Simulated assay, not measured.
Amino acid sequence: MRDTPNSAELLAWYDKNAREMPWRVAPDASMNGERADPYFVWLSEVMLQQTTVAAVREYFIKFTTLWPTVSDLANADDADVMAAWAGLGYYARARNLLKCARVVVDERDGIFPSTRAELEKLPGIGPYTSAAIAAIAFGQSEVVVDGNVERVMARLFAHEVPMPESKPTLRDFAAKLTPKERAGDYAQAVMDLGATLCSPRNPSCEICPWRANCIGYAKGIAAELPKKSPKKPKPIRYGTVFLAQRDDGAWLLEKRPDRGLLGGMMGWPGNNWAEDPNPASPPIDAHWTPLNGEVRHTFTHFHLRLSVQIAQTDATSTPERGVFVDQKSFSANDLPTVMRKAFELVQGRLNQN
């Protein structure tokens, strides 16, 4: 019978191999009592939801440079925060970021609560994020389970029930291994193990600190785990966007509704996105030219196909919806990715002409 894995083996590996992150405290500092800034942990965990570490680093540094404290973020203009978030995706996270920061400042004097239960009362903080903050920033012995941890547990215990049905059992496995001491370091150690050695494809089992205790490795099935239920095919939705530029270089933009995809973000006027969309109604009276080609983008639950129409207008034209943003204030980098794709398509066509 194989020995049960223990946290000490993994922590010894983590002490030597911990990834350096701008929001982390190094293991040696952590063992000397230094804690990560809860604002940094919260911000990074929100950004990391469904986003890679590589993509988040730049955004995290940008946010903490612009808004070094939760009070700074709470006092920021919504439009500035949404623009800084542009390109990171899942824009509801940015809206909840502002809501949460303002609750922490207005109702808690800028101090994050230290327990999972109190953290979950804050806007946009669910079970995973609350456990991560409580463990990493406050040293609470909480069970932190993300996709990396689930993969490690499935392989460690050779659990072959497919995802997502296996999630509760994998969390139970993780709970049994979570130590009372150094819980924050342990949480980060398991995530690092999953992100580096116990990777989705071609895991580096030969140098894994838990190899001797890994049932999946012993059975030769580690790389096959976790198993996943077949995914349903994503539907395709269609829509149209209208890009109008005035003679002085200003672009016509429209703020999207606060609720829904890209909520609160500035983008090109258009119609609804649906498998059978409504007819497209231009936002301003002009001579509109449809472009050859389309914008393609994939969201979590559907693929999007956008047709693009362009028009040139003069200063006397008044839009029925949206506002013109002058050329000096306009930045394509402040747009959501799908809107930026439409702009790049237009620029490419104009350059060809």
Rank of each mutant, 00 (worst) to 15 (best):
L88W: 14
W210R: 14
V56P: 13
Q352H: 07
Y90K: 10
W210Y: 13
R155N: 01
N351F: 05
A94R: 06
G126P: 02
L304N: 06
S141N: 08
Y91G: 02
H287F: 15
D247S: 11
V144S: 02
E107C: 06
P319H: 04
H287V: 13
R296E: 15
L170F: 14
Q188R: 13
G194A: 00
P38L: 03
R259D: 05
L243D: 11
S130F: 05
A195G: 10
V152E: 09
R57L: 04
N6D: 06
E224T: 12
L177D: 05
Q352M: 10
R116A: 07
L43R: 01
D15I: 12
N6K: 07
D106F: 05
Y217P: 06
F343L: 11
E165G: 15
A92L: 15
E34Q: 12
E120W: 14
G126R: 04
A29E: 09
Q312E: 14
L197H: 00
N351E: 10
N6S: 11
I284N: 04
A223D: 00
I207N: 10
R182V: 07
P168H: 06
N202H: 13
A212E: 05
I61V: 11
A311L: 10
T51S: 07
L253T: 11
A86P: 03
A101Y: 01
M31V: 08
R201M: 09
L48V: 13
D80F: 05
M163E: 15
T169P: 14
I133V: 04
P269E: 03
T4E: 12
L193W: 15
L193K: 05
Y91I: 03
A154E: 11
A76C: 01
I125Q: 00
E165P: 11
V346Q: 13
S141Y: 14
Q327E: 10
V323T: 12
G267T: 02
L261E: 12
S44N: 01
D314R: 10
K228N: 08
H301S: 15
P200H: 00
E118S: 03
A223E: 01
T4R: 14
D172C: 06
V105M: 02
D78S: 04
P283K: 00
D314M: 10
P179E: 13
R211F: 09
T65D: 03
D106C: 07
Y128G: 00
D109Q: 09
D247M: 09
M266S: 07
K234Y: 15
F299W: 03
